[in-house]
Amino acid sequence: MASGLPHHSLGIGEIIIVRDGGVISTVLGSCVSICLYAIDGSIGGMNHFVLPRPNLGARVDDAYRYGDASCKALIETLLDQGVDKSLLRAKIIGGASIHHSQGLSRNIGKFNAEIARSLLARHKIPIIAEDLGGELGRKVFFYTGTGKVRVNLFSSEMKEALVAPKVSAVAKKTKVLIVDDSRTVQEFLKKIFSDDPEMEVVGVANHPGEAEEFLKSNKADVMTLDIQMPVMDG
């Protein structure tokens, strides 16, 4: 990549902001990145997150590994730099369907893409391009001055070396506890997880207090949490 522009390598859980043109690169599997830039070429930024939201007890210093915090921080950092929000445009990249040795769902990439879209829509920032899904990882180059994004897909041979072995058909299902005060969101998440043969919804709670009571006599491997809820926030 001999563009003559300053090059920045983006790692997991990081955000990079570049003024006056540069190139940000990263490697994505089921992770997702938002390439956010001003159409006047003055500034651009990119994030790289692993999961949509943190589980209960996640470390605070790992916040940008999660889409809800990472996407919000990326947008707010550019706005704090004095960028006119009407000039901002976004491209969303990644979200491949990949098996994980940690037992994570193949739908994690889909969930990551959905939270990126949701936060951009909340800030009314247009999404002008997406390169999402599939079963191959991506090497991404984002040219912040122009908004151009170049994506190189890994070959199937490279994929076999990069991703974990497929989960056995008899493997234990990942148990999910949904914690959200919205009935609509509860039903939406139940439908998504129920469609995945590797996931099992074991309970639904309206706030973290109910979740704590549930976990005293039940087990869950994964917990979804809304940020603002009655009784106790997520």
Rank of each mutant, 00 (worst) to 15 (best):
L5P: 01
H7G: 13
H7A: 13
S9V: 14
G13C: 06
E14W: 02
I17P: 01
R19K: 11
G22V: 11
V23K: 08
S25E: 13
S25R: 07
T26F: 09
T26Q: 02
V27R: 02
V27F: 11
L28T: 06
S30V: 10
S30H: 14
C31R: 07
I34E: 05
D40P: 06
G44F: 00
G45V: 03
G45H: 05
N47M: 00
N47T: 07
N47G: 04
F49P: 04
N55K: 10
A58R: 08
A58D: 09
D61C: 13
D62C: 11
A63T: 04
D68V: 15
A69Q: 07
C71T: 15
C71S: 15
C71E: 13
C71D: 15
K72Q: 15
L74W: 06
L78Y: 06
L79G: 11
Q81R: 13
G82D: 09
G82P: 07
V83C: 15
D84N: 13
L88P: 11
R89F: 11
A90E: 07
I93H: 04
G94A: 12
A96V: 06
S97G: 10
H99C: 09
H100S: 15
S101E: 14
Q102R: 11
L104C: 09
S105H: 01
I108Q: 06
N112T: 01
N112P: 05
N112Y: 04
E114R: 12
I115W: 00
I115Y: 04
R117L: 05
S118P: 02
S118F: 15
L120A: 07
R122H: 13
H123G: 11
H123V: 01
P126R: 08
I127G: 01
A129S: 05
D131M: 13
E135W: 02
L136K: 05
R138V: 03
R138Y: 01
K139A: 11
F141L: 06
T144P: 03
G145S: 05
R150S: 13
N152D: 13
F154N: 03
S156H: 10
S156V: 12
M158I: 02
K159F: 06
V163W: 00
P165V: 12
S168E: 05
A171Y: 11
T174Y: 07
K175M: 03
V176I: 15
I178C: 01
V179P: 09
Q186P: 14
E187S: 12
L189I: 04
I192C: 11
F193Y: 13
D195Y: 10
P197N: 08
G203D: 10
V204L: 06
V204C: 12
A205E: 05
A205H: 05
A205D: 02
P208N: 14
A211Q: 05
E213G: 04
L215S: 10
K216T: 01
K216Q: 09
N218W: 08
N218P: 02
A220F: 03
V222C: 12
V222E: 06
V222N: 11
T224F: 07
L225T: 09
P230R: 03
V231M: 10
M232T: 11
